[in-house]
Design a protein around this nucleic acid. Sequence first.
DNA 1: AAGTGTTCCAACCGCCTTTAG
DNA 2: CCTAAAGGCGGTTGGAACACT
Length: 244
Amino acid sequence: MGKGRAACCDKSKVKKGAWSCEEDLRLITFIQKHGHQNWRSLPKQAGLLRCGKSCRLRWINYLRPDLKRGNFTPQEEDTIIKLHQSFGNKWSKIASHLPGRTDNEIKNVWNTHLKKRQLIHSEAKLDDSSCAYNSPSSTSVLSHANTIIHEKEEAKRSCSSSYNINASSSSLSNLSQVEIISSPNIVDMDWIFQFNEESNNYLELTRVLQDDGIIEIPLESCDHVDIWDMLDIMDPPLQTGQWT
DNA sequence: AAGTGTTCCAACCGCCTTTAG
DNA sequence: CCTAAAGGCGGTTGGAACACT
């Protein structure tokens, strides 16, 4: 054993950066079937060239089925602000009060939106106390401004693409089929692919144009597809208790 | 239309804590 | 109790997407 802490994995042999659609599916399929008792050994068993920590992070922050996907509501944002006042940057503690939200997500929302808003608030409060006789009240102006900020952020975020996914899996056939149906206002096509557990590989991925038949494309080309909805309708994994 | 600046978030890094032997 | 391994956490960053000039 060398000096210091051993690396969690051999950095030269692991892939880094954004996860591909195939990697996501491998991870999902593996956890659905086997759970995640040991993150360190999981990548090898699942056939992933990733560090165990990376798999854990990907699952917890993005793939696990109990995640509440989508924008934070004003209520959730208020909760974060209040909890941050009591806990500070204890993101996991804050996340434990917001079911379906991850510490990473909350941290990002805080750093990108709420921190700024808090700053505006505290500055406005200073103005409010020095110009308390102004009408309409600074508080109502502030509240209005807050609503506008939130609406702008909502509009911006709602532009991101989303997909509806139908999934079916059968323990008898050793085959999982997932059909990704495009969002109606984005593109007019469906995606279908199958994972064969015997060969431990994907049999096919097809892009189905609604009018023009089927065009086969390689699996790697589906990197942009959001697949998390699939988890909502698949069988629960063999993991007991909480996801984290 | 092109170039530049800004925002946002997924993912990484490394430290701390917990657990198993 | 001690040690090493694994899990958990918070800070940071790379780069894609978007906004502005």
